[in-house]
Amino acid sequence: MVLPDLPSDLLLPPLPPIADPHLARLAVTHSSAHQLPRRPTSLEFEADEKVEDYEKLEHVGDSMLGSVVTGLLHDLFPLLRPGPATMLKSHLVSNNTLRQLCVRYRITDHIIAAPVQLLTIKSQEKPVASIFEAYIAAVFYDFLTSDVPGAYTVDNMEAPPILHPLRPLQLRTRGHAFDYIDAWLRPLFTPIARWALDQMTADAKVVVQAGEPSSDHSVVGALSLVNSWALKETGKLPEYPTLSATGPPWAVECVVVDKNGVHVRADAIRETKGAAKNVAAWKVARQLGLEVQA
C-alpha cells in the first residue's frame, strides 16, 4: 500500500538548529553546486579531497534514522510482529515521508545547488528526502563538534522536549549524540507511527473485504501450488501476463485453463511483479479449492 500524505494538522517538534556553519551548509548542498566529477563507486580518494555535498551525511543519517525508528516501534507496539513492524518502518522512513517532513520544516528553503537545477531538485522526492537524512546526521555531529550545539542555543520552550544537561565537549560521546537526535526524532515520529499503523490496519480490512489476502506473507507457496496443480491436471504451466505497461505498481494476471477449457483467472496489483504474481496465484488457488499452507 501507499500511504496518503501526512495529516495537515500534524504538529512537528521544533527543528534543532545546527550551530556549526560548515555542517549546516554541507547538509543542504547538492553535488551540482560544485560541479565536481562524480565517482560514486570509486574506492580511490585523494588525501586532500573534500566532501562538499550532503551525500556522506545522508549515508550516516539514513542508518541513524532507521535505528531510532526501529527502537521507537518496539517501544510503542511491543506486540507488533516483526513482519508488520518492518512494513510500518518502511512507511516511516520512505522517501515520500521524509520529503514531506523536509518541506514542512522548510529545510528546502536553504538548499544550495546549481541555479539552473535548483527548482528541479526541490521538486524531486529523492534528493529532498536525502537532505532530510543528511540534516539528521549534521545534528548528530553538531553535538560532537560545537561547544554549544544548536538546540542548546535557543529558548528552552523552542528546544526538543527532553535535553540532558550539556556536558563539556571533551566528555561527550557518540551515545550522548544519539540521545540528542533521539530527543528530536522520537516526538516527531511517534504520532506519524500511530497514524501510519491506523492507515495500515484500515487498508488490511479493505483488502480482506475485497478478496485480498490478509498479508502477502499468507500467499507464500501459492505460486508453486498452482503451477504444480496446472502441470499435473493440464500438462502446462499457468500464464502470468503483465497487465500494466509500466510500474510500480505492477498488475499481473494468473490464467489457468482446466481440462474442460474453462479459464480460471485472477489479477493482483503490487509494488513488484513477483509479489503481484504470487497474490494472483493465491486468488486462483482459492477458486480451484486449493489450500495454501503459509
Rank of each mutant, 00 (worst) to 15 (best):
Y180G: 05
E212I: 00
S214F: 09
P149T: 12
P165D: 13
L171W: 05
L166W: 02
A204T: 15
F178S: 10
A204C: 10
V220N: 06
L166G: 02
I181Q: 05
Q170K: 14
A159S: 15
A210G: 01
V148N: 09
G221S: 07
A204Y: 03
L197F: 11
D179A: 13
L188V: 07
L188N: 03
P191R: 01
V207W: 04
R167A: 12
Y141I: 01
D216H: 00
L197R: 11
M200A: 04
A177M: 05
T201F: 04
I162C: 08
L171N: 13
T145R: 09
P149F: 11
R167N: 10
L197I: 05
Q199F: 06
F178N: 04
D147S: 10
V154H: 07
Y141R: 06
F178I: 07
T153A: 15
P191A: 02
L169A: 04
R172M: 07
Q199W: 14
P149A: 10
I162R: 13
P187W: 11
A183H: 11
R186A: 02
P191Q: 01
H164F: 12
A159H: 02
L185D: 05
A183V: 10
Q209L: 12
Q199A: 09
F143M: 07
A177R: 04
P191C: 01
N156K: 15
D182W: 01
L197H: 09
A193W: 01
R186E: 05
D155M: 06
P165C: 08
A193F: 04
L144I: 13
A210T: 04
Q199D: 09
V219Q: 00
D147H: 08
L166H: 03
R174K: 14
A151L: 09
T190Y: 06
A204Q: 14
